[in-house]
Every structure is written in C-alpha cells, then in structure tokens.
C-alpha cells in the first residue's frame, strides 16, 4: 500500500528535569515499513536516531493502556495506530495534556489513576463480608455479569481525562474515568453502597453536576465505552435522589 514512503514525525521534546531544557517540537524522518504502527516507528527512532527519546509502551497490543498520546490532534493508543492511516505521511505526537509530564511523550497516568481510586474508593465494597471460599458461590444474574464486564473494560489510558476540557479547567473534577467506575460499582449487586453513598462522592460540582457534556471522553475512548449513556444515567439517578 504505502511501502517505502518517508514518514515525517514531529515529536514534542522536553525533559522537565534538565534545568536548561525548553519544550520544543523536533522533526524526525523514517522509512515506512508494511504494517508499521507508531509503536514500531518510535522504537526505531529511539534505536537509530535518538536514544534519549522517552515514551511508554507495555503490552503493545492495545490492552494495557500505557501508550496513550495525542496523534495529529486525537488522543489515542499509539501501539495500535497504523502509520498508513495518515496519507500525507506527517505525524505529530504530543504527550497527553492534563497529566504530570515525565519527559517527551511519557506522562504519569499511573499516579493520577491511583489517587483517583483512593479518593473515590473505586473498589468493590461487598455487602457480605465473610464469604466462605470453600462453599458454592452466590449466583449472579448472567445479564448483570455481562453488563458489569462491559463497564469494566476501561484500561485507564487517560485519554478521556485529556480530552475533557472540563477536567483540564478544574483539577478536582473526577472526569469520565471516575464516573464510569462509579457507574460500574453502582450497577454491581454485590456492592453495599447505596445511591446516597455515591451521591456523596459524585453528586456535586466535581462529579456529574460539574460535567458539561462536552463528550471528549466518548468521542476518543479507545475502548468505545458508553460514557455518554453512563454519565447521563448517573446524573438522572443523582437528580432523582436529590428530588
């Protein structure tokens, strides 16, 4: 298809730990190979042209959520972005905005997600505390299990956070990732928390009532999670609880 093209990468470079360094865009060129992804290209650039280039990959299969970055204006997973998608052969890479920059394309999403989980208590709080693991498990509606998995597919890549203008403007806003996870536990019949408990967490300006429905989350989520429907669902639920 597009074999033998020369690709031009414009990559954001900045090392916040170097006292004299300033943010800049640096241009690199590389020969395209068949089936090349941004993952392959970045590794080739590091090996052959600039060994100091920082970026994060782990599974390189679209599963772990490590490699989200802004590619030509769209935040997405770099490992599964084929370079052949860009007919002009020009690719601009920026780190995800809204996260602590480690260097170049690497941002600290892990720290962010851990803090969010601690703040919103994003874990199952089972209504039956002492479950006997030797006994037959309690049945669960198969439909419910399937629905839970649907909401659990989030990989914490941080795309929804960076794509949300509300979150960028207000640090304390929980963002789509927080609300999706709340929605997941709200749905879970094994969780003891009531609507009131969830209201305390997201029934406010930092939660569903601060969301302006800009839908950057929905439109960029690499896992196509139903943010739009879920946040609306939570908002209705919280509003009903209020009234």
């Amino acid at each position: 298809m597009s074999q033998g093209r020369t690709l031009t990468f414009n990559i954001f470079r900045y090392d916040p730990q170097e006292p004299d360094d300033k943010p800049k865009m640096v241009k690199y060129q590389i020969e395209e190979t068949p089936g090349m992804t941004v993952f392959i290209a970045l590794n080739m650039l590091r090996e052959l042209q600039d060994t100091s280039l920082q970026f994060d990959f782990v599974c390189r299969a679209g599963i772990c959520g490590s490699c989200a970055m802004v590619i030509n204006g769209f935040p997405t997973l770099a490992c599964r972005t084929l370079t052949s998608k860009y007919p002009k052969g020009e690719i601009t890479l920026m780190p995800l905005p809204g996260f602590e920059l480690i260097g170049d394309l690497s941002v600290n999403t892990g720290k962010f997600m851990r803090e969010l989980a601690e703040r919103l208590k994003l874990w199952l709080q089972p209504n039956a505390d002492d479950v006997d693991v030797h006994r037959l498990e309690a049945p669960m509606d198969p439909e419910e299990a399937a629905k839970l998995y649907e909401l659990e597919r989030c990989v914490e890549c941080g795309v929804c956070v960076s794509a949300c203008a509300t979150k960028q403007m207000r640090d304390s806003f929980v963002g789509a990732v927080g609300m999706m996870k709340i929605a997941r536990f709200e749905l879970d019949s094994r969780d003891e928390r009531t609507v009131e408990d969830f209201y305390h967490v997201i029934g406010n300006q930092d939660g569903v009532f601060g969301c302006m429905t800009l839908l950057g989350c929905q439109d960029n989520c690499p896992k196509d999670l139903p943010h739009m429907q879920q946040i609306a669902y939570l908002r209705r639920k919280m509003a009903v609880a209020l009234v």
């Binding site: 874990w123 479950v131 693991v133 669960m140 198969p142 839970l148 998995y149």
Partner: peptide
C-alpha cells in the same frame, strides 16, 4: 483453584455466569 475463583468474586470479578 476453586477457592481463588470464589475469593475473586468477592473482590469484584464479574465472572461470566451460566444461563
């Protein structure tokens, strides 16, 4: 192994269920 599966249920794993 069965104990681990059942324990994980209580930690939130939405195992696919039998219909």
């Amino acid at each position: 192994a069965p104990k681990a599966v059942r324990e994980l249920t209580n930690w939130g794993v939405p195992w696919t269920r039998v219909t």
